[in-house]
Every structure is written in structure tokens, then in C-alpha cells.
Design a protein around this nucleic acid. Structure first.
Lengths: 192, 192
DNA sequence: CGCGACGTTGATTTGCCTCAACGATTGTGG
DNA sequence: CCACAATCGTTGAGGCAAATCAACGTCGCG
């Protein structure tokens, strides 16, 4: 029961004893999700944060013109949610969908708040988690505003090879913020 | 001595007694910065995080073609650093410069690590700080890849009026990732 | 087998950049 | 305090980057 991936993930930053793990298991909800099944739908209130035990998910926004923009992918060992919706109790601006059959561990907002009080070391764990997430997003902003599409494409597949294997060209394009047609033409003019 | 802005900022999320404040004061370095003075130069190792007591700063990347990309602005009551450099001990990918005469409070990386150990409630404080920073950056990514330049311009000045007052068109353009000339032409075709 | 989504290609249009020029503002040294 | 230099914001011409739209072969799935 204790050999969930999530414990290893947490123990990268803080230590857990068996009592902690028992307690955590009482908070977690393990969910199996089918390919193409939605974990969250845009507009809903998102009150859970998810950890991917195995499989892969995609979070994307759908605008009023029908254009999809991929905010993030999550493969094994990643955390994912609509953070603004989760923290500030706002309607979600993204949907989260499974790219393949997956297993996630869901942690409810109120239970997480309770966890912070019961085991303050989780403040540290999530401090480090958010710190890294912030760094990643800040670098992504820099790439978006200062690099070309070609550069961003190759940076993406080099930085996230595990993700790149599981997704389509169309999905990478929506992550980069370009059309699939344009990404296709960029790839044709191979790396100079 | 205790009436620094930074204490109010911290007390938005955790409570401080006078002993805490004394201790904090021993960690802080208060710095006055002149307009156009650099707080951090790209390439250096950044081992400090800064809180803006008053004034305003700008963090920007300079690429090999001489193009500036503004990563963030910080006015009174904001925290700013090159987070990747600060946390991962990497060379900074941005410079930070004062837009006007300013006062910042600098906190050293090692002293912050010490602070986490001495006063664990600061894990909570920075957990919340990074959580919010992550949410902001994630929304900025979404804006970047799914909205037009015109939309992003008006969103920026509505969201950050205090910042908008203090900066030039050129700086907004470099934050949005477009040229000053193009931003100028966008503004001419006023909001339809 | 047949449908629908995907990846590609090409033609056309639009968004945005580059470069150059200009007046207006700001800053600076004498 | 003035004169000059530097930077800023704007405008316009031309070129490239990227979107749009339509067409077509391929593949996975029911």
C-alpha cells in the first residue's frame, strides 16, 4: 500500500514515517481514468490537485473562437490542477483530460489545508513544488516572448522527451501557441 | 524600526511578534538604489531575493541580438529576484535595474534557508508567495499564446495600473514581446 | 470497411518586424 | 541655465512570420 509513486515524490523533499503515510492515505483518493476522460471541465470549480501515478494528462483552455491552448502536460510523477481555480475558488479556465489510461491521486483543497495544519512540513514540500513551478513558468514566458517558434519547438522536445513521445503535433502546436500547419512547415525546414 | 512595509507584507499571511521582527531585521539588508542602478546583472550568480519598500524595478533579459525582454516589473510591496538563479545557483538570465530611486530589502539565500529552520512559518509564507507567483505566470503564459497583442496590452494596464504609470511604452512592448513600433500602431487603432 | 482526426502542402491574407526618418522629451555637461 | 546629445514615441515603406482556408493521403478506431 505504501509503494505509491507519490510517496517517493514527496520524499524527494521531506521525510515521511509510516504514521504520516497512513494519514496521507486517508486523505488521498486514487482514481483510474480512461483515455479521453475529463478530470476537470473548464468553467467548473476545481477543488482538487492531482498527482499522476501513471499515464498522462493535458490541461488546455478553449476560447470563444474554438481555439485550444495547452497550458501544461503532466506525465508520471507530475502534479497538475488549475491552480487559480484550486487556490482562489474561481471557475477553472482550463479542462484537464487524459491522453491515455491513467491513474491519479486526488487531494481535496480542504484536506490539503488540514494537512498543512497537521503536518507543517507539507508547507515546505509545497513551497518547493510551487517554487519550481514558478521557475518553469517564468522561463516559459521568456521563451515565448523572445525565441522563435523553431527554437521553442526543439527546446520543448529536448526538455520534455517523455512528454513529447506521448503527444501529437497538434498538441505541441497548441502548447507553443502556433497552428499545426505552421509547426509542420517549421519542421520541414529542418534545423539549420 | 518595525514600520517597514515588508512586515505588513509578511503579516498578510502569517503573524509576527516583536522577537520575530528583531530576528528578521538581523537578516535583512536595507539598500537604497539610484535610478538606473543595477541590483543584479545578467550572468552573475544571484544569491538574494529583494522586497521593494518603495520605488520600482524591472527585470529583463538581453539576448545575443541585443533584444530586451522584460520578465517582470516590481513596485512597492512586491518581491523580485531571478528565481532560477537564486534557487538553483545558476547564472542569472536577467538583469534587474531601478526605474527610479528606490529602497529594497535584500534577503540572502543562506539566511533564508536558516530562516526556514528557525521560523518554519516562513515555509508557509513563501509557499503562499510562490503559489501566487505561479498562478500569475501561468495566466501570463495563457495570455501570451491565446490573446492578441491589443488584448494583452489593455489587460496589462488594467491589471497593473500602478506599474503602467511608471514605465515607458518601450518597456511595456518588451514585456508583451512586441516591438515599440508595433505597440504604437496597435494603440492608434483604438479599442474597437 | 468507412468515418473522423491527424499531418502535410500550397495559395492567400494578416500580423508583426525591420529600417529609416522625424518631432518631442529627457538628460547632461559646460 | 542653456545647448547639445540621447532616448522616446510615432509614422510609413517594405519584407518576413504566421494564420487562414482548402485539399488530400494516412492512420486509428468503431
Amino acid at each position: 500500500m505504501f509503494n505509491y509513486q507519490i510517496f517517493k515524490n514527496i520524499e524527494n523533499h521531506i521525510s515521511l514515517n509510516d504514521v504520516d503515510k497512513e494519514y496521507l492515505l486517508s486523505l488521498f483518493k486514487v482514481k483510474n481514468i480512461l483515455k479521453k476522460e475529463y478530470v476537470l471541465k473548464q468553467g467548473q470549480n476545481c477543488n482538487k490537485i492531482y498527482f499522476v501515478e501513471f499515464g498522462s494528462l493535458r490541461a488546455f483552455n478553449l476560447d470563444d473562437k474554438g481555439k485550444e491552448s495547452t497550458i501544461m502536460f503532466a506525465v508520471q510523477d507530475w502534479w497538475i490542477t488549475d491552480m487559480n481555480s484550486f487556490i482562489n475558488r474561481q471557475p477553472a479556465s482550463v479542462s484537464i483530460i487524459a491522453l491515455e489510461n491513467s491513474q491519479v491521486i486526488a487531494l481535496d483543497f480542504n484536506l490539503l489545508e488540514e494537512l498543512y495544519l497537521q503536518l507543517p512540513k507539507f508547507e515546505r514540500f509545497f513551497r518547493i513544488l510551487f517554487q519550481n513551478a514558478y521557475i518553469r513558468e517564468q522561463q516559459r514566458v521568456l521563451y515565448n516572448i523572445s525565441y522563435t517558434t523553431e527554437e521553442r519547438y526543439y527546446q520543448f522536445i529536448e526538455k520534455y522527451p517523455a512528454i513529447s513521445q506521448k503527444i501529437t503535433q497538434k498538441q505541441i502546436a497548441s502548447y507553443l501557441g502556433v497552428t499545426p500547419e505552421f509547426l509542420s512547415s517549421v519542421k520541414k525546414n529542418k534545423r539549420s
